[in-house]
Simulated assay, not measured.
Amino acid sequence: MKKSDDDVAAAFARLPALLDGDAALIQRGRFLDVDCLLGSTEQAFHVAIHAGRIVDMAPAPVLMRSWTFGYRATPAAWTAFWQPMPKAGWHDLLSLTKRGVATLDGDIRPFMTNLQYFKDLLALPRGTGGAA
């Protein structure tokens, strides 16, 4: 992996701790229970969310582990997304998919039903410098 790939993977590895520090976001996701695949196109993570908290996170692929939906973007897209003030078109998860630098696949109902939760969850590295 290149340095930027490593930086993005490290930013994702910090997500559980960042989420634990955001009580309002945990409260917003209190009804959410889902297993998903989140990360970069180079290194994704199996993420288990229960009652709005990340209870398990393991680097993919994990043999025989299922997931409901996956959201993955290129390392360059995550780096741009995690800027303190991202440029237009790089500021939003759905904008990244529209640009073609991110994919959303699987059963997207839990993602769309809890869209603001996932937008805020995946933006948490912005406050810590992201992958910069």
Rank of each mutant, 00 (worst) to 15 (best):
K2P: 13
K3D: 14
D5F: 01
A10M: 04
A10E: 12
F12I: 05
F12N: 03
R14N: 12
R14W: 03
P16L: 06
P16C: 05
D22A: 05
A23D: 14
A23V: 12
L25R: 05
L25M: 02
Q27V: 00
R28G: 00
G29I: 05
R30M: 01
F31Y: 00
L32R: 05
V34S: 07
G39Q: 10
G39D: 08
S40T: 05
T41H: 10
T41R: 06
E42M: 08
E42Q: 14
Q43I: 03
F45P: 10
H46T: 03
I49F: 03
I49W: 04
H50K: 15
R53Y: 00
I54D: 01
V55M: 08
V55N: 07
M57H: 02
P59T: 12
P61W: 10
R65G: 01
S66L: 08
T68W: 02
T68A: 03
T68G: 02
T68H: 09
T68S: 09
Y71I: 02
R72H: 15
T74I: 01
A76R: 15
A77M: 06
A77H: 09
A77T: 07
W78E: 12
T79F: 02
A80D: 13
F81W: 07
Q83D: 06
P84Q: 08
M85Q: 10
A88R: 11
A88M: 02
G89I: 03
G89P: 12
L93Y: 02
L93I: 02
S95P: 04
S95H: 09
S95F: 03
L96R: 05
L96D: 02
K98S: 12
K98I: 08
R99G: 04
R99M: 13
L104R: 09
D105I: 09
D107N: 15
I108C: 04
I108K: 13
T113N: 15
T113A: 15
N114W: 08
Q116I: 00
D120A: 13
L121I: 13
L124F: 09
P125G: 08
P125R: 09
R126W: 11
R126D: 12
G127L: 11
T128E: 13
G129Q: 12
